[in-house]
Computed example of a mutant assay.
Amino acid sequence: MAVILKKPEMINQQVGWCGGCGHGIVQRLVAECCEELDLVEKTIQVVDIACAYWSIDTLNCDGIAGPHGRCAAVATGIKKVLPDSNVYIHAGDGCSYVIGLAETCYAAQRNVPVTMIVVNNGIFGMTGGQMCPATTLVGDKTVSSKKGRDDTVAGEPFDMLNIIQNYPIAYAARGALYDSKHIDETKKMLKRGFEYQRDNKGFSIIEILSPCPTNWKMSPVDAMVKLKEENEKIFPVKVYVDNGGEQIG
């Protein structure tokens, strides 16, 4: 029997992301999870002042744009005031792991029951394509590393989930968007993060490997290939922590 696919009702208008960007896929997965878990009316999104900001105009739920890098702190405040709400963060790797590294770590240390989604596209996207110290691969060219990232100058990228799995959190996982199989697995990770918040089990972080064709200066197809063949070698797709801090990966 044919399966009829339709747009989630939570998505109420089009948005302005670049062609081939993964943020739109993430947004749809969030909407599907919230609808399937009957969380739409309780949902409050916290978006970064960067690429993720477009989501606040598109999803039919309450939301706020936190100062750049401070999303985890803003989400913490909302959850403390409205503990029954479904608070999730939609932010990038630069926001979460560089400018807002302290805020992300303290939300994890406090095990605040929010769901943090980090879109890892290996670059500062909205500000023009600068190198991201946390995630830009060695050798990758950006507007601030025109000859390619030099590890003797800028160091190497680091796997933040390897670090954050040592905090007293409920869930940490990394998905990817380069094919339908991994998109389905990423949706399962997101749903787990929302379920753990619903059940008050603690802090969840789901990092998602996503392409940035515009700033990588690639076609959308080539960007997906790079994501699979290069980025995933440094940032493995797997579950790091599940069910109240039990380490499994």
Rank of each mutant, 00 (worst) to 15 (best):
Q27R: 12
V118Q: 09
K6G: 08
Q165E: 13
N215Y: 07
L101Q: 10
Y196C: 00
L29P: 07
P8V: 05
P213W: 00
V98N: 08
K191E: 09
I99L: 15
F194M: 02
I4W: 13
A2K: 15
Y196H: 04
A75H: 10
Y196Q: 04
F203R: 13
Y178F: 15
K191G: 00
C132V: 03
C212R: 11
V30S: 13
G175F: 08
C95Q: 01
E35N: 09
P67Y: 03
Y53H: 11
G63A: 07
F235S: 05
D150M: 03
V40M: 09
T127F: 08
L37C: 05
T186E: 11
K6W: 04
L161S: 06
K181N: 14
P67M: 14
P8C: 06
M189N: 10
E230W: 01
A50M: 00
E9V: 05
Q165D: 10
L5G: 06
S204N: 09
T127R: 13
G63C: 07
S210C: 10
I25E: 13
K6I: 03
F194G: 00
C51I: 09
L177S: 10
I169N: 04
I56F: 04
T43R: 03
I164F: 12
D222K: 15
P133T: 08
G63P: 10
E185V: 04
A172L: 13
C34K: 07
K217V: 10
A223F: 05
M189A: 12
S180P: 03
D57K: 08
D151V: 06
V119C: 04
K228D: 11
H182Q: 14
M218L: 15
T76P: 07
C51Y: 08
N121E: 04
I205N: 09
G19D: 04
H90M: 12
Q165G: 10
L37G: 04
S145V: 06
E246D: 14
A2W: 14
A73R: 13
T76H: 12
K201E: 11
D150H: 08
N162P: 01
F235P: 08
V239W: 06
N200M: 09
R149E: 06
E32N: 12
V237F: 02
K146M: 14
Y106T: 12
V98S: 14
G129Y: 11
S96Y: 03
L209I: 12
K80H: 14
L227I: 10
H90G: 00
P67K: 05
D84P: 05
I49F: 03
M224A: 03
E35M: 10
K141P: 06
G122R: 06
G92C: 02
Q165M: 07
A31Y: 09
C18I: 05
A170N: 15
D199I: 04
G125Q: 03
K188I: 08
D93C: 06
N162G: 15
G193V: 06
L209G: 03
